[in-house]
Design a binder for these strands. Structure first.
Lengths: 337, 337
DNA sequence: ATATTTTACGAAATCGATTTAGTAAAAGTA
DNA sequence: TACTTTTACTAAATCGATTTCGTAAAATAT
């Protein structure tokens, strides 16, 4: 079933059919209706590849998970963002193509080559750490890109992330108002833009409040996952002096920290209050439930979709959006007494 | 940069270039090397749409999340499966296209139409409950499909799922060996093939062991999520008579059940032992950690990829694979004394 | 030396759309 | 009436590949 079939069924040329499909104005009302009827009855849809070939627009958005680790579909935060993005970009008429991660794929070419290969109209780059050079090439290309948790600089690139300065500020503020003065930080060794912003803002916030920063209380886990958080906290406990409160830059790290604390029979928040970051579902399942900073994943995905759409249609210049984070108070951070 | 450019750079015809790219045998060794060098230097990749148009093969696999709810990227189990599938199908040279969910998308056409539109080489259907007619059409079409947690019947369809009979058998066996005789079941009202198999096998397993089934102890939550599990258990507790152990057909339901039990100051496993199903990451984060039945998500994704590949290449007839589940013992189900 | 086969390539058709440029017929204008 | 403009349509080029078929030249056989 192709456009030629439709054309002969309707007794018109393929050009006419194409024009009707694409809403050209130079078509008679009578003809339009007759052909449209056939279009509806047959359920005909033009071939995507033929259309792409002819128009150079594919109506496909490429999804790139950048960074060596944990930026895959394994990361609950990114999955939520992509889920929201998928929903909203779908409303705008696009489907999304997930590029298989290079390290697993037989495809040796870089992201840019693959974007060109599929003629994607734009792409979204979700970033962990250790960004490959390939991502940079894509960013600098003519393909509209929007970055999530990565600061892109290309002339066709925008990016979006939570306002990570505020993330830490809100955490510190909450600790402070709850009476805590001995506050530690659990970051990640292999730090990304996001985590280093949080660390920077954490220090600044303490300083602004006149709280002395104890460098011993700033520790870093090896990786991003729960196990690494556990290991980091375990070693920290072994070293001795502990703060009364800690901010973990991700919920998973906080979960690991909780496990280590419990193992040493330290209570939460009694012996140590804990705040995480992301607000993944599991925060409600732990005991105590985890106070955390919610990143508005739905909003980030939605705005990413809208920004990309505008970028593709040249309705907007590249820009940056920082999404307001919100602290979600649960049980892991009672008021100190 | 297209094939014509390459051809003129090399001083040969486009046909020759194409043949070199596609490993035709009627090419002289000298020419092959000369052109290959240019190919390598320029990093040229043939346009996907042109290639698809000419060959009718797209090297794209469509991903369909079927069912009205919770079969989206929100479901940790399905995300893990897709993640593994993506990895392995990527190794085989395919990228994956996520169809935006119909209810959100402006695309009114059904899945089959969209598969044809993109000329996907095959597709994977991930199923929740309430399968749409559109999925059935796809299953019955000529497009190779593999179903995950859905029994497809098309002549080009295979499917894969955990062996759900064994899931329940193992749970009941574990409860039994731990000394439990009063065992309940927490299912889902809107049951799918998967959950009804688990319920059926649950009953059979009890019967085989000569344990009387108390129909009051078989309850169903409204939906799939934690909150629904909480509500179901809360009402159950309010009704009075409780079993000493319960099997929840999903970890999320078990989490909800845990919350309800704790709220009523009932201990786990002291007052009630709990076993979930799926083994999502969060099972390790709860207190107590959740004993559960692990579905081998990596294997399911990997085999799904391989089955689909074989189906596409007609190297295999449609078939079914039941993946062996494995019980993962944690703290929510101590031995009864 | 001639006939036959093999090798190595290219011309051109094809896939299924879009889009430009051209035209006959209808409508409008002077 | 004759000219101009508008309307409604189509032929054909194009997008960038693949693939069939044809054919000179080279290799081999007779």
């Amino acid at each position: 079933m192709n456009i030629k079939t439709i054309a002969s069924m309707a007794g018109v040329s393929v050009a006419t059919v194409s024009k009707i499909i694409n809403n050209y104005s130079d078509i008679g009302e009578e003809t339009r209706q007759r052909v449209q009827k056939i279009l509806d009855e047959t359920g005909y849809k033009p071939s995507s590849s033929a259309k792409t070939l002819a128009t150079k627009k594919s109506n496909i958005i490429g999804v790139v998970f950048a960074g060596k680790l944990n930026s895959d579909l394994n990361h609950p935060f990114f999955v939520s963002v992509i889920n929201s993005f998928k929903k909203h970009i779908g409303l705008l008429g696009y489907d999304i193509l997930l590029f298989s991660n290079e390290k697993f794929s037989t495809a040796k070419e870089d992201y840019l080559a693959r974007c060109r290969h599929f003629q994607v109209d734009g792409c979204i780059i979700i970033a962990g750490d250790d960004i490959e050079a390939s991502v940079h090439n894509l960013d600098q290309s003519s393909i509209p890109c929007i970055g999530v948790d990565i600061a892109l600089s290309g002339t066709n690139s925008s990016y979006i992330m939570s306002d990570n300065m505020k993330v830490s500020a809100k955490v510190v503020e909450h600790f402070y108002l709850s009476g805590y003065r001995e506050i530690g930080f659990l970051g990640i060794e292999r730090s990304s833009v996001v985590t280093s912003m949080r660390e920077k803002a954490f220090n600044e916030s303490l300083r602004n409040l006149g709280i002395t920063i104890n460098p011993d209380w700033i520790i870093h886990s090896k990786e991003y996952d729960e196990e690494s958080g556990y290991q980091a906290m375990k070693q920290f406990i072994a070293r001795g002096s502990l703060p009364k409160a800690m901010f973990a830059v991700s919920d998973l790290l906080a979960f690991g920290a909780m496990r280590a604390l419990k193992e040493h029979h330290l209570t939460i928040p009694g012996d140590m209050a804990l705040i995480g970051c992301d607000d993944i579902d599991a925060c409600s399942y732990t005991d105590p439930t985890l106070t955390t900073v919610r990143q508005d994943k739905e909003k980030i995905g939605r705005l990413a979709a809208m920004m990309l759409f505008d970028l593709i249609n040249k309705q907007m210049d590249p820009g940056v959006i920082m999404v307001e984070p919100e602290i979600v108070i649960r049980k892991s951070c009672g008021g100190a007494e």
